[in-house]
Write a protein that binds this DNA or RNA. Structure first.
Lengths: 339, 339
DNA sequence: ATAGTCCTTTGCAGCGCTGCAAACGCAATC
DNA sequence: GATTGCGTTTGCAGCGCTGCAAAGGACTAT
């Protein structure tokens, strides 16, 4: 059986298809009598508008795509959970894409691909792309970038103040009397801007406490995941003069680091204090619970969606802005010990 | 500037639009000369096919939707990571939806909604819907269901053998000499079929060891998350005769349970052994690492996608089948102790 | 040379909806 | 009773592509 169309409804209701469209979309003024007739016909036929046809006619898809490096990273999963309902509430569907942090894949997505027609805008969390790569994108693609990339004025950027947050984290460690503080997660290359900001905060906190930075305690990792955290921690423990505290650039890194410490029979925080970043649920339940920087994820999601839709619906060019969400330090057992 | 269309390319190449379409889609036989002309024109104009228009003309969207209860549940995130590339490889985009396990929301999604046009098929992991609810869905919606719902013959079902897996888990606890074994995660109501199968395995293992089941050691939880696991474990510890081992119906539940045990100053596995279910990454790094049932997630993802696409593309009715993926027991520190 | 064959290319119509602007109907006004 | 004005409804064309079946062209067989 054929799917019922606008025309079928129009015929049954005795009005023109255009009027049915008006009723369906709440357009224009329609008399109550007409509306009622039409609605009855719609109900009777079980009509549902064909979104595909509407998309073609309007030239908009009503979908936005969220592009993240890894879907199974709790931080992104939690963020997505905020983005999807926020977008839905504003009438947009959410497509999800995962790039594996692959530069080429990321480039394709922001380039002039054929998939472009599938979404009206993009929320993008780049990993493999450098600032310059971001510049050569489809100029007509409404874009909101998450994470730490300063906007070039043609897209928006939403994030927290990474430098300040990192400074807070390291300051916390100092305030607990720790003196040899390491950092895990630096990425000293063009695409590692987010990591570098955290390193910057790490240095700032040292400066504020009049302590020199021991460069050999800054460990680089390719990713912010558990495996890399575990490996990096092992390297730190093999150091001639190991740290008594570690600032990890994500909670996953912290989780990996703690894993290694336990394997080596060391105690957290007695032997080594650990602080993470992101406040994923995991850290609230692990043993010990993980002190962390808590970004306001709901706010980030909300801001990103709102801003993107504003950009999509605006007819004239929207200047790119930097939006900051709040963050706060959450001290838990991995620095405070069991209370 | 207007987006270039098929017609623009045709004009430039000096052929009909239909021929350009044939080249773009690799249809029919096109002479090399023609193909080359067209391809040159495409490159010159930077043409990209309008997917929206194609969708309308073909009546298919090229998208499938994956509906899960919670996106931030690692199990689903990890599964999704398998589904997205598998679908992509077969030419489908993946939409993601989250229902919060809400019955109404789930019902809307499988019902005759307007969103139906946005996807050609659905991979669905129900939580709030009972078997009967599943029956009143849009009959034209190609559907593959994950988790434990026996198919009614009009859709497919992909999962592991939950009863066998659960039996394995509990048998493992018995084999370690544990005798008072509890279970956390039962859901003794219509929508809790998956949970009930695990309980069934729990009982089967007891029977096989000639041990009676202590009903007071079976704790129900609304969800399979950390918070519920933590609460349930607390209840078990307040039991007059607490267990020496617990079978948790998910790794998240196990994580919550371990959290509670540590808070109470108990050791895992010395005081209480814990085994989970799902093998999420978390469990491989937590302290202690969590013994678990490992479902072959890649296989589940692959099977689900393949089957769904077969269902979508087939012209005649496809009988619903039950597809089983492999599982295996992974023993880690939470049952074996630190080696 | 002519008919027949097969492969390539084409034209047409239409997927179902919406943008636009004109047409309509009705009531108020002169 | 004719005119103006305003809110409601309508018709048309077209979004850009593909399905279908027929036309065209090159080539072979007779």
């Amino acid at each position: 059986m054929r799917e019922t169309t606008l025309r079928d409804v129009a015929d049954l209701a005795g009005v023109s298809p255009r009027t049915v469209s008006n009723v369906v979309n709440g357009y224009a003024r329609v008399t109550d009598a007409t509306r009622e007739k039409v609605e009855r016909a719609i109900a009777q036929l079980g009509y549902r508008p064909n979104v595909l046809a509407r998309n073609l006619a309007t030239g908009r898809s009503g979908q936005i795509v969220v592009v993240v490096p890894y879907l199974d990273t709790p931080y992104f999963a939690e963020l997505l959970q905020g983005i999807i309902p926020a977008a839905r509430k504003l009438g947009y569907n959410v497509l999800v894409d995962q790039t594996d942090g692959d530069r080429e894949h990321e480039g394709e997505l922001i380039g002039r691909g054929s998939r472009r027609f599938l979404f009206d805008g993009m929320i993008f969390s780049p990993l493999g792309l450098s600032q310059e790569d971001l510049a050569v994108r489809d100029p007509d693609l409404p874009l909101v970038v998450l994470g730490e990339r300063v906007s070039d004025g043609t897209f928006d950027h939403v994030g927290i103040d990474d430098v300040a947050a990192s400074t807070d984290a390291v300051t916390h460690l100092f305030s607990l009397g720790r003196r040899r503080i390491a950092a895990i997660g630096d990425q000293p290359y063009p695409t590692g801007e987010a990591a570098q900001l955290r390193t910057q905060g790490f240095r700032a906190a040292h400066a504020a406490h009049g302590r020199p930075v021991d460069e050999s305690l800054i460990i680089s990792t390719a990713r912010f995941n558990r495996a890399d955290g575990a490996t990096a921690m092992a390297a730190l423990l093999d150091h001639a003069d190991p740290p008594d505290a570690v600032f990890c650039y994500s909670d996953l890194v912290a989780s990996g680091a703690i894993h290694t410490l336990h394997q080596r029979g060391l105690r957290v925080p007695e032997d080594v204090a650990i602080i993470g970043y992101d406040d994923i649920e995991d850290g609230r339940y692990s043993s010990p619970t993980i002190s962390t920087i808590q970004p306001d994820k709901k706010a980030i999601a909300q801001l990103a969606v709102e801003r993107l839709i504003k950009r999509i619906t605006s007819t004239e060019p929207v200047p790119g802005v930097e939006l900051r969400a709040e963050h706060r330090l959450i001290a838990r057992e991995s620095t405070l010990g069991i209370s």
